[in-house]
Design a protein around this nucleic acid. Sequence first.
DNA 1: TCTGGGGTCCTAGGACCC
DNA 2: TCTGGGGTCCTAGGACCC
Length: 390
Amino acid sequence: MAGRVLFHIDLNSFYASAEVLKNSALEGLPVVVAGLHRRSVVSTASYEAREFGVHSAMPLMMAQEKCPQLVVVQGDYSWYEELSERFFRFVRQFSPYVEPASIDECYVDVTEVIKQYKRPLDLAWTMQQRIYQELHLPCSIGVGPNKFLAKMASDMRKPMGITVLRKQEIAAKLWPLSITEMWGIGKKSHPTLIANGITTIGDLANPDNETKIMTLLGKHAYSSIQNARGNDTNVLSFNTTVQSISQSTTLDRDIEDYDEIKTVLRRLAKALSRRAQGDDLKGRHISLSIRYFDFTNAVRSMSYQDYTNDETILFEQALLLFDRNHNGKAIRHLGIGLGSLFSRNKSIDQLQLELKEHTAKDSISDVLDRLNAQIPGIHLTTADKKLQHS
DNA sequence: TCTGGGGTCCTAGGACCC
DNA sequence: TCTGGGGTCCTAGGACCC
């Protein structure tokens, strides 16, 4: 597809901005959102806090050391979700082609809508201003011909920046950047690359280095190399179905006592079950993650015979995985996950849609047979009320 | 100062079926 | 008696992102 125009819109220090919005007394102060425990880390730092060298993922103790007047607020995640939904709704007024990338960022295909504007940047400017005035949230917008370039562009000016990254500009604007700025290359790969002379994004893009990089990082490096050359061919994905959910916790202190471990697992199973039930989700893969005191991790999983979101089943299966795998070391962190999810209501909606489209060709019972086979955990017949009116 | 919690996607070997 | 290729599922592990 030639000539696409994509925006990447990123809400700046979103959680901190959301807290300021809720409590204007925080405005202008060095604020972080973090848990209130000994072992917490910073989720988000306001720009004022960043001035002190505080940043995301920094241990809270360290952040307070760097900035003694730091204001620490506990996260209010339902508030963030509400704001996030407002944000996506707002963006969809401009273009229906929106891919949410996380709670505070999205990609938007504006190829068509941007033609209505005199100058290409007018649309970005309008959206940014209105997001600020109407939602009271600062954002940065990156403009590019593909997702990767739009994403890299939005990172270049923050907060409230607008940056265009055309393909013919990558040699000047992208390639000089450090390899540590490259989206998709994380901190495990940095030392390997730097030790081998790959220090900039330009080095990554350079064909002379391709064989070396593939040997160092393996085949998944190929897409990063292509990205660095400006050749990202990924299309926007509008499938927002969630793949897995989990609940995990870092204990206040490392534990070894079996009863204590059971208590934690029971609590996690309860929270996970509540969430799954609230979101109309069941899953058939249950996983247990353990982090030991020495930061070694183990994730063990099993497929269960049915789709479930039952608290007792989640607890019992997690405990089974624990008993099968625990190596006796003191435990720092425990988590339970539920994967291979399906949502009954969503499936029925989809089924009704398919029925509408297919009854002309196939008989209703053929379609029902096919969909019953596809959608586990339900069996629908022509007598099903939800289907009668379709 | 001492390392969170919530996710996604990919790889790879072995089992099993056709 | 010796032996294929393809497809899917299961589990473990790892990198990465916000």
